[in-house]
Amino acid sequence: MSDTPAISVQQLQKRYGSTVAVADVSFQVQPGQIYGVLGPNGAGKTTTLHCICTLLRPDAGQVEVCGIPVQENPKAVREKLGFVAQEVALDKVLTGRELLQLQADIYHMPRPLAQERITAVLQLLDLTDRADERTGTYSGGLRKRLDLAAGLLHQPQVLVLDEPTVGLDIQSRLVIWDFLRQLKAMGITVLLSSHYLEEIDLLADRVAIIDRGTVIAEGTPEELKARVGGERITVKLQEFAPKELAERGAQLLQSLPFVQKVLINSAQGNALNLVVQRNGEDPLNAIRSHLQAHGLEVFSSSQSRPSLDDVYLAATGQTLLDAELAAAEANLGKKKK
């Protein structure tokens, strides 16, 4: 293994007419990593991946796969890459096996090797039983699995997956997550885009969060969460605390040195949402005894680490969910015009 990155994207830009789809995206993926590209709808994930996969020509910036510049030598890049698109595009009339055979031929595999690999990927994705049926009869999850099998058939060094689990039920999603872990174990570099926080958090070694065509945060999920800092603690003084009680509790807690922020959350029955900086001892104990010393009891409490959503929130001022809703509305508006 050399230390050439498996994928290197530097200051990528891509416009469609007047729409800037990618404004400034840079990141590097090391060999063997699972790398996540996270962002709301329309952030520019697909456009970025298409530039990497030689499907789009960047307007500016440098993209390399295994050290090979994509613009200068697209054919060599195509040899190294597997790409599984966001929308599954199969030929309804072909059987799964026929599709894989076609895939093997466009990657110039000799027949016996192709047979061997087809059998192997069918097994890996648990498709053997349905392999000789037409793909038109497949369910969504099955179609996606066949598409993944096709992307993997030529044993690419780098597999690029555009939202591999979007629109799938939990069962299929788990199968695919498991499959991605197997790929990693095989030493294949995986670049995947997603707008599911948990998915990236669970699978990715590193992540780039993209918003409106720009990388707004990059690092390991742990780093990113540590960077926004603190832990989230929710304290309820009563099931439904009166406002004055909550305000008094908030005031008391604000004076603790490790509490950074206190919010009264009316949607949660005036619960107190705290951001705390942990330094050694358990902050919850300190909170409990401080409140007790002033005559207040803790009714219930919960504690959580910051999530990638908090990272997104800290960078953009809105949650990922809000961004998605806004994007959906903007889209509706466009269509109406």
């Binding site: 996969c53 030689t54 595009a89 199969l90 466009i106």
Partner: peptide
């Protein structure tokens, strides 16, 4: 139709001679 449904992309990312 292959182009519109994305099937063509399957061919275009492959290293066709």
């Amino acid at each position: 139709f292959d182009r519109e449904f994305g099937f063509l992309n399957r061919l275009l990312v492959a290293p066709l001679t």
